[in-house]
Design a protein around this nucleic acid. Structure first.
Lengths: 154, 154
DNA sequence: TATTACGAAGGTCAAAGAAAGTCAAAATAA
DNA sequence: TTATTTTGACTTTCTTTGACCTTCGTAATA
């Protein structure tokens, strides 16, 4: 007996193929179609369309709300994906951050100005919260910005 | 399921383009045209034509009343300085941030990709700290990034 | 002429409606 | 048992609607 989550996963992937890697859907509509709880859609998205599987999700609530699924354009051992999923862990220092950002600039992945913007956002001074939390938030933000760079390549 | 507010937004923007950034309209007339409550027009103006998005609204009641929408056009450096020194202040929300960043992108101050990077760094989700602190840190980071942009323009 | 009354705008605010998100308990599969 | 999936109650966000308020111009009135 195929698990419903797998069926929904396949369904979404078929839609994604038809629409060249980008897709907007209605959570409640889909849930109704599969006769399941709306939150099961979230479960499928969280487990099958996660970042390390190469997908990016955004959504909006309220009237006319939607969920957008974007299939990121990446080759298997993408350096950015490696940074996001492995190199940058739960927490990271200002120095490590600067090294990483300089490095991807030198590789031509980002411009000099982008490097400047990213670094300026991640200094100890700017993230003025207790040190133990600071590294965690810095890691969060850095990863989010790298995802944005991944996304902008699509 | 296109939101009516978005349709009205687009309609107004088309009119604005045709009239070179300045436009007068009748609230009731527009509401009748879109078959909606007149107050929905106010909602659209408040959410889509705010100062942060680069528009200025004035209006007059009574016979011969009107609503005037003006698309602002300021000097780029002055506007960045204004944002840094006045607008952003001690704390700022995710939505306000998005409006401001989209706006400076539309003015050609930053690229689309830079806008994406900046916005993604400043979401509630990414700055995962208590809400009262979150806005403060977001304001800090946003200002730091705008300063980086200012410097890289020279 | 000065005042008042009325209709024609636009403004405000809160409630209702329309999505999506979260989280943990219950059910099922490995 | 342990891990994964399914469900449902509750929350948050955004939009739409409607009742009531304020302002302005003009016509009628004192």
């Amino acid at each position: 007996m195929a698990r419903l989550s797998d069926v929904i996963e396949d369904f979404i992937k078929t839609l994604l193929k038809q629409s060249e890697g980008e897709l907007e859907l209605q959570r409640n509509e889909l849930a109704e179609y599969f006769e399941c709880a709306p939150s099961q859609i979230n479960y499928v998205l969280a487990t099958r369309f996660s970042l390390d599987r190469g997908y990016y999700i955004e959504s909006r609530r309220g009237g006319g709300g939607f969920i957008r699924i974007v299939q990121l354009d990446l080759d298997k051992d993408d350096y950015l994906l490696h940074l996001i999923n492995e190199r940058i862990g739960r927490t990271i220092s200002e120095n490590e951050t600067n090294d990483i950002v300089t490095n991807i600039m030198e590789r031509g992945i980002i411009t000099e100005r982008e490097a400047l913007i990213i670094k300026s956002a991640l200094t100890d001074k700017v993230i003025a919260i207790p040190a133990n939390l600071r590294g965690v938030i810095r890691a969060n933000i850095l990863k989010a910005m790298l995802v944005a760079i991944l996304r902008s390549r699509v």
